[in-house]
């Protein structure tokens, strides 16, 4: 086996140990424990109160704005990470370039702010 694959042997063994541990304890429990099912035992747990049927609720579409802004600024962060690693090599040119990038996205934030998108209502 090549050295490349040997590095992954540790990962395989670790995964095998995890599966064995979890699967083994669950299996052992199922073998050992008594099985005397009653109807009350199969009720949905709701902190001791009687469970209310119909757990579906409708999420509000207005939260899309937060998702939108999050994605944009998250991608901005993703672009900043490799820049930060290499900043020493890029000196002033790299700094100015990234500042321009952040400035453009900050303009977007200003626009979103003035459009009252950031209000929590």
């Amino acid at each position: 086996m090549s050295a490349f694959l040997r590095d992954y042997l540790l990962v395989v063994l670790f995964a095998g140990a995890a599966i064995a541990f979890a699967g083994g304890s669950l299996t052992l429990g199922r073998l050992i424990r008594p099985s005397r099912p009653t109807a009350q035992k199969y009720l949905v747990y709701e902190s001791g109160v009687d469970p209310v049927p119909g757990a579906w609720s409708q999420s509000q579409i207005r939260y899309y704005l937060f998702a939108l802004l999050f994605v944009m600024f998250d991608v901005e962060a993703v672009f900043i990470f490799p820049w930060a690693v290499n900043l020493e090599a890029m000196a002033v040119f790299g700094l100015v370039e990234m500042l321009i990038f952040i400035f453009i996205l900050a303009l977007g934030l200003v626009y979103a702010w003035r459009k009252q998108v950031l209000r929590w209502v």
Binding site: I104, L107, V110, Y111, W113, R114, K115
Partner: peptide, 12 residues
């Protein structure tokens, strides 16, 4: 384009 956008945001 960016200038127009910012102008719109600031002018309101």
């Amino acid at each position: 384009a960016m200038a127009i956008l910012v102008l719109a945001a600031l002018v309101g």
